[in-house]
């Protein structure tokens, strides 16, 4: 439970941006009339604006919905899509659903792990790429599928996936390349 003994959040470092994010959160809370059953939706919104669910945000949500922090933390940690840790600047998600798996998604992931020198679930030391896996994106018709920063690409190979990841990592300057 490292989350619960976190040091003060880094939110304070950027007051303005932070206020805006809390404002977005407040709108969601208000729209749901602060009903506790809206917890999952509120967490989704919070993650959307903050990038991940840090302790300060969870505390805030707990207070607003009048729920014990344990309940909020319990829900946030139950669902796979909620991140309690910050992720890298870019997210590369390899689908490991069955359709993608039988079409070789495992090898794609393996080679990405080797190239990026991280294990699935980790972020490269420079904070650039988080390598993640998913359980079926519903794009099985074009398996194997890889998502890079919310864009789904189908019929991937290890080479195409590595190429895509490398190109977001070191942006090609205009005029350069093909």
């Amino acid at each position: 439970m490292t989350l619960l003994n976190h040091s003060p959040s880094r939110i304070k470092s950027n007051q303005d941006q932070c206020d805006l994010r809390y404002k977005t959160l407040d709108i969601t809370l208000k729209r749901n009339r602060h009903q506790p059953d809206a917890l999952i939706e509120v967490l989704h919104k919070a993650q959307e604006s903050f990038g991940y669910l840090e302790e300060g945000v969870l505390r805030y949500i707990a207070r607003q919905l009048k729920l014990p922090l344990s309940r909020v933390y319990g829900v946030a940690s139950f669902y796979h899509l909620f991140n309690l840790e910050p992720s890298g600047a870019h997210r590369c998600i390899v689908c490991l659903g069955t359709a993608c798996y039988v079409k070789g998604a495992g090898q794609i992931l393996e080679q990405l792990e080797t190239t990026l020198q991280v294990k699935v679930g980790e972020t490269t030391p420079d904070g650039q790429i988080s390598l993640l896996s998913a359980r079926c994106l519903g794009a099985c018709g074009i398996a194997p599928a890889v998502v890079l920063d919310d864009v789904v690409s189908g019929q991937q190979t290890a080479e195409s996936a590595i190429h895509a990841v490398q190109s977001v990592r070191t942006p090609v300057v205009a005029g350069q390349g093909d």
Partner: peptide
């Protein structure tokens, strides 16, 4: 509309109901 958050077990009906209520599935 209620949106899930990535848990296969939430397809099970009683877990799904808990999830709609804003709880662990």
């Amino acid at each position: 509309i209620r949106i899930g958050a990535g848990a296969f077990v939430c397809g099970e009906e009683t877990a799904l109901i808990h999830s709609i209520e804003g709880r662990r599935g």
